[in-house]
């Protein structure tokens, strides 16, 4: 192995080690400042952390190999027979490009602030309004004749039973809290039995969202539901009616308490929260909500 190719090999090992350790460091930093949750859900975070640890190990092995090559030992782990030499012409440039392809985005990841997705993304994905188009495949219409008032309010079949039971619990609350850990399940239950909940009091916290289907004096308060990572986030929310609606800017976080009613958005009948109290709040530490896997189990 010539001096030149040996130097190349060392440079390559070190450049790769820096990139791998950089990815590991990025994960560690996100975790340390509590921002990892902006990108991946808590149940997936452990795998990403394990991957970061593995990348450190591989980076360490590469540094060790570079050192061995530096010492001029021919029997480095990946000796002459499978060495990366003989290097084809122009390969330095190609290798530089390969490393840059990782280093550049990584630098951007480090340098730009960590933010959540907001109402701009919700507009692209389409806000799912409570009581809107999403309906159970099997309607609860075929339920047996109800025995008492609550059964009449919450008719169900075997599949919608968990929602009907949860609906009864919510119905008994003086103020229905639409909040984590059952944000999504609460909104779904309200969607399944909208008529039963009209006139009940409810409270919700989330970010302000609006688009041209939302009327004057109204806005949507919603949150993103995340499964694995922010890429699969789906916005869910409820229409809020307030005389002060125009005062609240999009993406602002608020808590609203009011009375449930119904309205029409873009031809669909949806639930409406008539606000009687609205306060601006700090964005939630964890901006996303997650489906409750134990719901109905």
């Amino acid at each position: 192995m010539t001096q030149r190719t040996n130097r190349k090999l060392i440079a390559r090992h070190l450049a790769r080690a820096v990139v791998l350790a950089g990815i590991g460091l990025y994960v560690a930093r996100l975790s340390a400042i509590g921002s990892l949750g902006l990108y991946i859900s808590p149940r997936m975070a452990i795998y990403t952390k394990l991957a970061a640890a593995a990348l450190y190990l591989i980076a360490a092995a590469l540094v060790y190999q570079a050192l061995k090559a530096w010492d001029g030992q021919r029997d480095s782990g990946c000796g002459e027979a499978c060495s990366h030499a003989p290097a084809p012409a122009g390969s330095s440039l190609r290798q530089l490009r390969a490393v840059a392809l990782f280093a550049l985005p990584l630098a951007l990841f480090f340098l730009t602030p960590n933010t959540t997705i907001g109402s701009a993304m919700a507009a692209q994905k389409g806000m799912n309004l409570s009581g809107g188009a999403a309906k159970p495949v099997k309607q609860a219409a075929s339920a047996p004749p109800a025995a008492d008032e609550l059964d009449q309010l919450f008719p169900h079949d075997s599949l919608t039973k968990p929602y009907a039971e949860f609906g009864r619990l919510l119905y008994a609350e003086p103020v229905i809290e639409i909040a984590a850990p059952r944000f999504l399940e609460t909104l779904t239950t309200l969607s399944f039995f909208p008529d039963s909940f009209v006139g009940r009091r409810a409270s919700i916290s989330g970010f302000v969202y609006r688009d041209d289907t939302i009327g004057d004096g109204q806005f949507v308060l919603g949150r993103f539901a995340v499964q694995c990572c922010a890429a699969d986030a789906i916005p869910y929310g409820i229409v809020v009616e307030s005389p002060d609606a125009a005062k609240y800017a999009s993406d602002e976080w608020m808590t609203v308490t009011g009375t449930l009613a119904k309205t029409t958005v873009d031809g669909d009948e949806v639930l409406l929260l008539k606000a009687d109290a609205a306060t601006k709040i700090e964005p939630a530490a964890d901006p996303y909500v997650y489906p409750d896997m134990s719901f109905g189990a």
Binding site: Y39, T115, A230
Partner: peptide
């Protein structure tokens, strides 16, 4: 807008970090 680039970054990073352990 800045917020759109931030959205790109958030989704980009989240896809990368989620795929990372499985690819590894």
């Amino acid at each position: 807008g800045v917020d759109q680039w931030q959205s790109v970054k958030t989704v980009f990073v989240s896809l990368f970090l989620e795929a990372l352990p499985f690819m590894l």
